[in-house]
Design a protein around this nucleic acid. Structure first.
Lengths: 347, 347
DNA sequence: ACGCACTCCGTAAACGTTTACGACTGTAGG
DNA sequence: CCTACAGTCGTAAACGTTTACGGAGTGCGT
């Protein structure tokens, strides 16, 4: 089956009528519509998207950009696949398709993004892994391409984003540890310029001050947010003269390396050192002792992202009246065994 | 900047010349080309892909289909992102873009695939997670859509695929364990109809027979290929009256659950029970004792997939003369501590 | 008989490209 | 001087859709 023209000839109908019948337009006879649909099904006709996009000026495709740099790949875990299903459940209602756009590691993310939207491959974009200043955000804002970002940024004063509640987590973690008797609490932060690092540390500092605990810069460990980073963090922790009794990790997988390094030195997490992680990931669920961490529903996050995006697209705005504003995504503590002891109390 | 027409007017040149200049066609003056490229850069013009695809009949986009069923998501680890970069390195040479197409979990994969290719969103397809009989393969073959599958299948007698060397792994693992003195070796297999399960078990059986060890069906544990599956497998293993001294896992993450269940019963992997896993995954790299497993380079696998796909596309065939045939992808054993003991020898 | 509203359908123009074809130069060779 | 040819470029026709517009037919009320 070539195109709509052949289908029309086969039915002895004009091509316009066929198009209207297929697209559910009102001015077409019920019987004709039935015949058209039947014939299309029988001959396996599906409209060519290029022709349709060209005429309509929209592709009905939403792009989810993914950086596949080595570091991201290691961290990504199944983060994206989890978010994806939430997104799709929203998009499906409007017959929008979602595609994932993996930016090659040797291409500038900004250029890649420009290519994809300038070529009109997608109507809108979801970006993640936002940098402290992110040119993509400026570009998308200026070009008036609908988008939503997973992650805050200092670029562009006002744009749609959802970000995880790093402040809340740091705050909650500190409060909890203090309640358990801890006074010397270490924390990890990314060595990069990522915005979330600043927020994380700042909240941690404020929570400490609230309890009259002096902020000790040597307790802020800057390492990569990865398994190796966790190993490294544990290493630095063990070198401190006055060893902390607790540590807060900004990424859950760091716990893997951290545990390993601790055990190598005979320090038992959950007994000699309390550990709290940022997210739960399948990858960290098996740890022994089980990791106390902050849970997040990737599906729900995807749904929220999808709704916010559509709320920023003129055509769909009406369907999502309340979904315009930004969201700081709350996380729920999932208590494990890794911080289940009181300081100063013998087991 | 709207389209090529505006660009042409701005330069006082015909639209045809502009197109030729941008596309590197030979019959255009050097100086004109320079001016066109400069103007395009300045005005930020990029060709609309819909128009181009419509005219040329091809999209220059390759689709990588991903099933995002819950089970797949959990198992996927970063498998796809790893393969992706290999694929892209090949595609980049031909200015082809790769997009990932996540099939919604509530949509039939077959229907989804049909929609994507019939709508001409992609020129070619890479599918994975092939079933024992897979309608997608029949469809793609019949429709003459270039594709390559990651995984064998009984559908369609002859189609391009790459599959992991399940036979080789089973064989190698058995040989190794026997050399270490093991005689009672358990193995896991998926409970599903997946083809690889049959191949895996069959090779295992043959290797045993070669050493005059009787095949004992009770040593084939059918569980889901996941962390929980591993837990379950260990459970069943412990219930056997004559406990095996070794077990071969068809998926590396099963080791996570398996370890946990074993330790709960005081059985130490690597001392009381030898364990060998199928792949190495970041997710399993931290296990204590470290898992002996078969390593695979996802990047290289991606490159091979990309080359094979292009070898099956008329336009690119000439560049990849030797990449037509199917590949059974070899895996390399990465020895760990989980099977590093000899049976009958006291430590 | 006429006008009008309504339903259904055909016609043709547009969307933004690429490209076959031919036209126009200028130059070289006969 | 005529021809051939190479180097440039403009013209216009496609590619497959959607959709504004108008026309044909019917039914109904005046």
């Amino acid at each position: 089956m070539k195109g709509i023209r052949q289908l029309a000839e086969h039915l002895n109908i004009s091509i316009g009528t066929v198009s209207r019948a297929l697209n559910g337009k009102p001015d077409v006879n019920q019987e004709t519509r039935r015949r058209v649909l039947a014939a299309a099904e029988e001959l396996g006709y599906v409209a060519n998207q290029s022709g349709r996009s060209l005429r309509q000026g929209e592709t009905k495709v939403i792009g989810l950009m993914i950086e596949s740099s080595k570091e991201t790949v290691e961290n990504a875990d199944n983060f994206f696949l989890g978010v994806t299903s939430g997104l799709q459940s929203v998009f499906a209602r409007h017959k929008l398709d979602l595609i994932m756009l993996p930016c090659p590691s040797d291409e500038d993310p900004h250029e890649y993004l420009k290519r994809m939207v300038a070529r009109r491959i997608v109507d809108a974009m979801i970006i993640s892994d936002t940098q402290r200043v992110d040119r993509r955000i400026d570009f998308l804002s200026r070009a008036k391409i609908p988008f939503v970002a997973l992650g805050r940024s200092l670029s562009a004063s006002n744009f749609p984003w959802i970000d995880l509640d790093f402040e809340g987590v740091a705050d909650h973690a500190v409060e909890r540890l203090i309640a358990l008797g801890h006074r010397r609490i270490a924390i990890t932060a990314p060595s990069s310029e990522a915005n979330l690092g600043y927020l994380f540390i700042e909240s941690y500092r404020q929570a400490l001050e609230r309890h009259d605990i002096a902020f000790d810069p040597s307790l802020v460990i800057r390492v990569r947010s990865s398994e190796e980073g966790g190993y490294q963090a544990a290493h630095e922790l063990l070198l401190l003269e006055e060893r902390p009794t607790a540590v807060i990790l900004i990424y859950e997988l760091m716990a893997i390396g951290l545990y390993r390094r601790l055990m190598e030195s005979g320090v038992m997490p959950g007994r000699d050192l309390a550990v709290i992680g940022f997210r739960d990931a399948p990858r960290a669920r098996f740890l022994q002792p089980s990791l106390s961490c902050f849970r997040i529903s990737l599906y729900d996050l995807g749904v929220a992202l999808g709704r916010m995006l559509l709320a920023n697209m003129p055509i769909y705005r009406e369907f999502y009246p309340g979904d315009g504003g930004n969201i700081i995504w709350p996380l729920e503590l999932m208590a494990g065994e890794s911080d289940a002891f009181r300081v100063g109390v013998m087991a």
